[in-house]
Design a protein around this nucleic acid. Structure first.
Length: 137
DNA sequence: GCCAACGTTGGC
DNA sequence: GCCAACGTTGGC
């Protein structure tokens, strides 16, 4: 079981929309590092849903329901997508400021590489953020 | 709205 | 294959 972080601007695609759609293909990634991360995802892996720009906080938990496949919106065929399902909301969203202020989380991919739209989360980081967010394991 | 960081593109 | 220029992202 691996853990991931999906980043989205709520203006483009928000957690509320994800919940309403339930399952949604994560298209539009045009970055090799992010695409590589998606290739490493397995069905059943879990991820955080993070709102960039507006809110800057982790608001929900999603599950990978379909593994890496070509992204139909990519004309070049270089990039792919996965499909994710909304699992549950984070009762108490964990903000970027809190993450930066937490020593154990200050080294997260989210902090170090702020521009990466899909990044890995270590198991210890996952557990701690769940705890901070009031998510029952 | 500004600015820094970083990935991508294109010329050589 | 290298490197400079450019565009985009995202935090503040």
């Amino acid at each position: 079981m691996k853990y991931w972080l999906f980043k989205s601007e709520p203006d483009a695609w928000s957690w509320d929309q994800q919940v309403a759609q339930k399952i949604e293909p994560w298209t539009g990634v045009r970055n090799y590092a992010a695409a590589l991360n998606m290739k490493n995802m397995k069905k059943g892996d879990l991820g955080f849903f993070y709102h960039s720009n507006i809110g800057k906080e982790i608001v929900g938990i999603v599950e990978v329901v379909k593994e890496y496949a070509p992204d139909p919106t990519d004309e070049t065929g270089k990039f792919g997508m996965v499909e994710i399902k909304a699992v549950k909301a984070v009762p108490k969203p964990v903000t970027l400021a809190e993450i930066k202020a937490t020593t154990a989380l200050a080294d997260m991919a989210l902090v170090r590489q702020s521009r990466l739209s899909v990044g890995p989360v270590r198991p210890a980081e996952w557990a701690l953020i769940c705890k901070m967010g009031g998510v029952k394991a």
